[in-house]
Amino acid sequence: MLEYIGYMFILFGVLAFLVSAVGLIRMPDTFTRIHIATKTTTIGTILVLIGAMFSEPSWSLKLALIGIFILITNPLSSSVIARASK
C-alpha cells in the first residue's frame, strides 16, 4: 500500500517535469523560461524524493538531505543565471 502512495508521488513529480519541458518551449523570453524551469524542477524533484521515501522508508534520511541540498542550490543557480543574462 505504502509503495503505491510512493508511485503516486513520483507520477506527480514527473508531471511537474513535463510542465517544465512544455514551458521551456512555450515561453518567449529568457526570464520567463528561468521562472518556469526553476519552480517546476524544484517541486518535481521534491515530489520524486517524497515518493522514494514512501517506497523505501529506510532511505528517508539521505533523501531528506538531498532535498535540503536541492532547496538551497536550485533557486541560487537560477538567480545567478538571471543576473548573468541581464
Binding site: 541540498f69 538551497i72 542550490t73 541560487l76 538567480s79 545567478v80 543576473r83
Partner: peptide, 17 residues
C-alpha cells in the same frame, strides 16, 4: 565575473557540505 550578496552567502553555506 560579477558576484553578489546571495552567491556569497550561499557559497559560505555550501562550501563545508
Amino acid at each position: 565575473a560579477k558576484s553578489n550578496f546571495m552567491l556569497q552567502t550561499a557559497s559560505k553555506l555550501l562550501f563545508p557540505i
